[in-house]
């Protein structure tokens, strides 16, 4: 789960236009992060796995190997944006969705479990790709817990919005 500094909540009405704007003009890739064993912490994985059904070459989850996927995308000769989706404690209402620019991610270190998104975003930038993080406020991250109703709703909404965006950008 991500930790943020200076996070600002996006109103639902603004979300689609925010997503449209950060998605840029090229292809859109979605990379879902999190831990499905910990209730709402798996929200990013659920978004990515749902999008995979229609966009198997453009949507990946943490289970697919984050670093390798980012490396592959960074080396493609195309204009693209990669959207990381993860649960994040924003101290907002559960299910709130916030689009955060990569500069606002506090994560600065790498652990053995996952290379920092900040490094991956920098790597993408060095190869001319853009990136952002879409955060979902969890209600619970209890081990072996069920996903909460508001977060399940947020997952569905995000899948629908991202499908619309990917449909126009990725099928051209």
């Amino acid at each position: 789960m991500h930790k943020l500094r200076n996070a600002h909540g996006d109103s639902e009405a603004d979300l689609k236009s925010r997503l449209e704007k950060i998605a840029g003009k090229g292809k859109v890739y979605v990379l879902g992060l999190g831990n499905t064993d910990r209730a709402d912490d798996g929200a990013g994985i659920l978004v990515a796995e749902s999008l995979k059904k229609h966009f198997p070459s453009n949507s990946f989850s943490e289970h697919d190997g984050v670093e390798g996927i980012v490396l592959d995308i960074s080396e493609k000769k195309e204009i693209s944006t990669i959207l990381f989706v993860d649960a994040a404690d924003l101290r907002l209402d559960p299910g709130s969705i916030v689009v955060v620019s990569k500069e606002d991610i506090r994560e600065r270190e790498i652990t053995t479990h996952r290379v920092a998104v900040a490094l991956l975003a920098s790597l993408l930038k060095s190869n001319g790709k853009d990136s952002a993080v879409i955060c979902i406020q969890p209600a619970t991250i209890q081990f072996r817990g069920e996903i909460s109703e508001p977060v399940a709703g947020a997952v569905n909404k995000l899948v629908r919005l991202l499908e619309e965006i990917m449909e126009t950008r990725n099928r051209r």
Binding site: G65, E67, G68, V70, L71, R108, E109, I110, V115, A116, A118, L119, S122, L123, S126
Partner: peptide, 29 residues
């Protein structure tokens, strides 16, 4: 201070590490 800061000067080596890691993951998979 971190590999993130190293990226500007050692981008090829960071990518090298990620390539090796990716392959190790693939063998595990």
């Amino acid at each position: 201070p971190s590999a993130i800061a190293m990226l500007n000067d050692y981008a090829d080596d960071v990518k090298r590490a990620l390539r090796l890691k990716k392959f190790g993951n693939r063998v595990m998979e």
